[in-house]
Simulated scan of single mutants.
Amino acid sequence: MAQAFLFDLNGTVIDDMHYHARAWYEILNNDLNAGLNWDQVKAQMYGKNEELLIRIFGNGHFTREQLDRLSVEKEKRYQQAYLPEMALIPGLQQFFEQAVLHQVPMAIGSAAIPFNIDFVLDNLHIRHFFQAVVSADDVAISKPHPETFLKAAQLLHASPENCVVFEDAPKGVEAALNAGMKAVVITTMHGKEEFAQYPNVLFYISDYTDPQLKQLLG
């Protein structure tokens, strides 16, 4: 039985990564003339928004104010497109409730900015399930650096080796590995083959109705 559950947000709690990719694709190509194809955009979708922009355009290309403006603009476009479709991934509400019954504390550990995390937690009315939230603003370096998950574990007073991370992205699973944590992969955006190099994956699920999850609750 796990001591704590740490959840990534986008693609893990909600199946919204296509909407993020589309918002980035529009900004990077239509607004910033990056000339990236869909797969190239998808490959860059990890870490903080500013980190993504720096990876593509180089350090110093944008001012701090431009990075902040582009980050918020991307999230506004994503939120406008996704809000009518917003829903928890099937089975997750029930899994949250079972975790509460088994007294397993939970946290969000996400590279999203608070503007985005609040959008999800408050519109879906799930904030009460989490004893801690770690956002992009709470860490110096985002995933695959382990700081996000280590800070979440610390806030829950849980040891890393007894935490289970729920992730949809290879870089997120790598962050869990770097933090000394096991991971459950939900295959909303990436196939199993993209996680083959990570020895900390417990198992794969397509949603939270998967019976394998019962083993985590004793």
Results as ranks from 00 to 15, higher is better:
residue 4 A to C: 14
residue 5 F to A: 11
residue 5 F to Y: 11
residue 6 L to E: 03
residue 6 L to S: 00
residue 7 F to W: 08
residue 15 D to L: 07
residue 18 H to P: 02
residue 20 H to V: 03
residue 21 A to C: 13
residue 21 A to I: 13
residue 22 R to D: 14
residue 23 A to Q: 01
residue 25 Y to I: 03
residue 27 I to E: 04
residue 28 L to K: 04
residue 32 L to A: 08
residue 32 L to F: 15
residue 33 N to K: 15
residue 38 W to S: 08
residue 39 D to L: 15
residue 39 D to W: 05
residue 40 Q to H: 09
residue 41 V to Q: 03
residue 42 K to T: 09
residue 45 M to H: 05
residue 45 M to I: 12
residue 46 Y to W: 12
residue 49 N to M: 04
residue 50 E to A: 14
residue 51 E to I: 09
residue 51 E to N: 13
residue 52 L to C: 12
residue 53 L to A: 08
residue 53 L to Q: 01
residue 55 R to G: 05
residue 56 I to Y: 06
residue 58 G to V: 09
residue 59 N to W: 03
residue 59 N to D: 10
residue 60 G to W: 07
residue 61 H to K: 15
residue 61 H to G: 08
residue 61 H to M: 11
residue 62 F to H: 05
residue 64 R to E: 14
residue 64 R to K: 14
residue 65 E to T: 13
residue 66 Q to M: 11
residue 67 L to N: 03
residue 68 D to K: 12
residue 68 D to R: 13
residue 69 R to H: 11
residue 69 R to F: 12
residue 70 L to P: 00
residue 72 V to K: 05
residue 74 K to A: 03
residue 77 R to G: 01
residue 80 Q to C: 08
residue 81 A to K: 08
residue 81 A to F: 01
residue 83 L to F: 14
residue 85 E to H: 15
residue 86 M to C: 06
residue 88 L to S: 06
residue 90 P to W: 09
residue 90 P to A: 12
residue 91 G to D: 01
residue 91 G to K: 02
residue 94 Q to F: 09
residue 95 F to S: 01
residue 96 F to G: 04
residue 97 E to P: 02
residue 98 Q to P: 00
residue 99 A to I: 06
residue 100 V to T: 14
residue 102 H to R: 15
residue 103 Q to F: 09
residue 104 V to S: 03
residue 105 P to F: 03
residue 106 M to F: 08
residue 110 S to H: 06
residue 111 A to E: 00
residue 112 A to N: 11
residue 112 A to K: 00
residue 116 N to Q: 11
residue 116 N to V: 02
residue 117 I to R: 00
residue 119 F to G: 02
residue 121 L to Y: 09
residue 121 L to D: 00
residue 123 N to S: 13
residue 123 N to V: 04
residue 124 L to A: 07
residue 125 H to C: 06
residue 126 I to S: 04
residue 127 R to F: 00
residue 128 H to T: 05
residue 132 A to R: 05
residue 134 V to Q: 02
residue 138 D to Q: 14
residue 140 A to S: 13
residue 140 A to D: 10
residue 141 I to V: 15
residue 143 K to E: 01
residue 143 K to I: 05
residue 143 K to N: 06
residue 143 K to W: 02
residue 147 E to F: 07
residue 148 T to L: 11
residue 149 F to K: 03
residue 149 F to E: 02
residue 155 L to Y: 09
residue 156 L to M: 13
residue 157 H to Q: 15
residue 157 H to Y: 14
residue 158 A to L: 12
residue 159 S to W: 06
residue 160 P to F: 04
residue 161 E to C: 14
residue 163 C to P: 15
residue 164 V to D: 01
residue 164 V to G: 02
residue 167 E to S: 12
residue 171 K to L: 09
residue 171 K to W: 08
residue 173 V to I: 11
residue 174 E to Y: 08
residue 174 E to T: 13
residue 174 E to N: 12
residue 177 L to F: 14
residue 182 K to S: 14
residue 183 A to M: 06
residue 184 V to T: 03
residue 184 V to C: 04
residue 184 V to R: 00
residue 186 I to P: 04
residue 187 T to F: 06
residue 188 T to M: 10
residue 188 T to I: 09
residue 190 H to T: 05
residue 192 K to I: 05
residue 192 K to Y: 02
residue 194 E to I: 07
residue 196 A to E: 15
residue 198 Y to L: 09
residue 199 P to K: 12
residue 201 V to K: 06
residue 203 F to Y: 12
residue 203 F to V: 11
residue 204 Y to P: 07
residue 208 Y to P: 01
residue 208 Y to T: 03
residue 209 T to Y: 10
residue 209 T to H: 15
residue 211 P to I: 07
residue 211 P to Q: 12
residue 215 Q to D: 07
residue 216 L to G: 00
residue 218 G to T: 13
